[in-house]
Design a protein around this nucleic acid. Structure first.
Ligand SMILES: [Mn+2]
Ligand SMILES: [Mn+2]
Ligand SMILES: [Zn+2]
Ligand SMILES: [Zn+2]
Lengths: 138, 138
DNA sequence: ATGCGAGTTGCAAATAATTTGCAGGAAAGG
DNA sequence: CCTTTCCTGCAAATTATTTGCAACTCGCAT
């Protein structure tokens, strides 16, 4: 590696400790709300302001390093862009979040393209329903 | 029809003008945010309070007369339960909301049941992506 | 090294969306 | 009617996110 953190400069962004830490936190956490990202960052940079986290998440999303997804009824959660390679199966009863390969959705995605010219991003919203455990219990 | 509005009493709910109007508004609007429902109701009942609308939407959802869906990054929109018979194709570029029959998703839904025992509700979240028009323009 | 200018940050305040407490008012049933 | 319970309006509280602004600092050009 020539010099570290080229990925941020390459996108035309300044390399600040806060920004690096936000990105690292998102990568470490898998998926996380802005609040959770802030919490994680505070481990090494206690002073970080929540609004800085929001702003950096937005900035990092604009340059394609992170993305947001909706797993629940409320706000968004953030992922590292590289890591968004699976569907999220969210159970409305117990709140569990399972994964499934994106290919599972391929026939559906193709049908929407063929019939409507609609290009689906299957990761933006979670797949909502009831998990096997909760179905068994009821 | 024996006597009107049995549907509310049958669910064990009191029949108040506000409640009836909220339900009618949801039915008339197709999909609507709580704010939009309130607006609609105010046409005939100007005094209705927004919190009454929120409370009634929740109540009506609990008894199964309405349901909420997420069409965008933000809050929920409400539908009459009978009316939720299609997918929502939401374009992230232009914001348009198209419809598609639920059957389009059948192979996908079946795959999730077979492979994970996960029962998908395909209407809770919209199907997010880019519409044909926006794809053409870019 | 030094300095400058644009991009960033922290902080406080502003917005926006939704929820809650409470006291008065109205619906259902006897 | 009368009572009980549910429901409503209103104000205040929460929660989530955004914005204005002055101070700061990163990266580039002296
Ligand atoms: Mn929801
Ligand atoms: Mn979104
Ligand atoms: Zn579950
Ligand atoms: Zn579009």
């Amino acid at each position: 590696m020539a010099d570290k953190n080229h990925e941020l400069r390459d996108k035309g962004l300044r390399l600040t400790p806060q920004r690096q830490l936000v990105l690292e936190a998102v990568r470490a956490l898998g998926h996380a709300t802005p609040e959770e990202v802030a919490e994680k960052v505070r481990a090494t940079h206690p002073g970080i302001n929540l609004s800085t986290v929001y702003r950096n998440l937005e900035t990092l999303e604009n340059v394609g390093l992170v993305q947001h997804t909706h797993l629940g009824h409320g706000g968004a959660t953030y992922h590292a862009a590289e890591e968004l390679t699976h569907l999220h199966l969210v159970c409305g009863k117990c709140g569990s979040v399972g994964d499934a390969p994106i290919e599972t959705a391929a026939p559906f995605v193709n049908a929407l393209i063929d019939e409507y010219g609609f290009k689906t991003d299957v990761t933006h919203f979670a797949i909502y329903g009831t998990c096997a455990d909760c179905t068994a219990k009821s």
